[in-house]
């Protein structure tokens, strides 16, 4: 049922998009982005605009730079000491690669969900309250409200409301991942980056996360890296195909899957390589 309605609305959305394209606001603009790990170039001349309140999927074979790209968007890539970057990434019209841009500010606006669920070894409550707390919210009542709202937002409230004080590692993998989404939601991000968020999950948990993504995009722009093409087709509005550090094709999800314009894209999505 849910899946059916989802595909229906998507069809409509795609039609609407054709018309409203011009009005859509750009969240992230990438201009001539190059990135090197030491001497190896991982990203080559990336030019990509990411739009507000959409789900943007990034697909491509292993080692194509898709994870590197998404980690550049919140500058987590800098944790690797040998990284060098050139070009511009404009987030809400400011270049985040500029030295004066504080990463903490960026990451407060741009949340991230990782490949493997990585809750803190604390209670479920503390996991969600962590973000608001480090940003100075101390009032117990407000924190309680934030925790409930975020857990509801991540569609996990009913499963955990009776055991908020238990360790997060007692949850199943799928629950942990939704908890991590709740943790990101708690500071009301503008964008959420998801780096293969369902690759460690079972099919039912995957479905739950996918439904959640559809729900979240009403308020939040979502960029999701996935190696699962069906997933990209199911949940995204726009898809970028990365290959060897380059963007081969970037367009509406419907058209990339039904009518890819590049031969390499076609080969990849029909399963000829990757």
């Amino acid at each position: 049922m849910a899946v059916l309605t989802m595909t229906e609305t998507k069809g409509k959305l795609a039609e609407e998009q054709e018309f409203s394209q011009a009005e859509k606001k750009i969240v992230y603009g990438t201009k001539d982005l190059n990135l090197w790990y030491g001497g190896d170039q991982a990203l080559k001349n990336i030019n990509l605009d990411i739009y507000e309140n959409e789900v943007t999927a990034i697909i491509g074979p292993s080692g194509c730079g898709k994870s590197t790209y998404i980690k550049t968007l919140n500058r987590m890539v800098e944790l690797i000491p040998v990284v060098r970057v050139s070009g511009e990434i404009l987030y809400r019209e400011r270049n985040i690669l500029d030295r004066s841009y504080k990463v903490e500010d960026l990451r407060t606006n741009v949340g991230m969900v990782f490949q493997k669920p990585n809750p803190f070894p604390k209670s479920i409550y503390e996991n969600v309250a962590y973000g608001p707390k480090i940003h100075g919210i101390r009032d117990k009542k407000i924190l309680n409200e934030i925790v409930e709202k975020s857990l509801r937002g991540a569609a996990i409230w009913d499963e955990v409301k009776d055991r908020l004080n238990e360790n997060a590692y007692g949850l199943s993998g799928g629950q942990q991942q939704r908890l991590c989404i709740a943790r990101a939601l708690a500071i009301e991000p503008d964008v959420i980056l998801m780096d293969e968020p369902t690759s460690a999950l079972d099919p039912i948990s995957t479905l739950k996360v996918e439904e959640l993504v559809q729900e979240l995009k009403k308020d939040i722009s979502i960029i999701i890296v996935t190696h699962n093409m069906q997933q990209a087709a199911r949940i995204s509005d726009r898809t970028a195909f990365f290959l060897n550090g380059e963007v081969v094709e970037y367009t509406n999800t419907n058209s990339i899957f039904s009518n890819p314009s590049d031969k390499r894209t076609e080969d990849y999505i029909t399963g000829r390589f990757g």
Partner: peptide, 24 residues
């Protein structure tokens, strides 16, 4: 992964150390 989780929420290095790493 835990340090990354906290950094991704906008925590500073010191906050990550004192509120995630040391407690863990």
């Amino acid at each position: 992964a835990m340090r990354e989780g906290a950094l991704a929420l906008g925590a500073t290095k010191l906050e990550v150390t004192l509120k995630v790493v040391v407690p863990a």
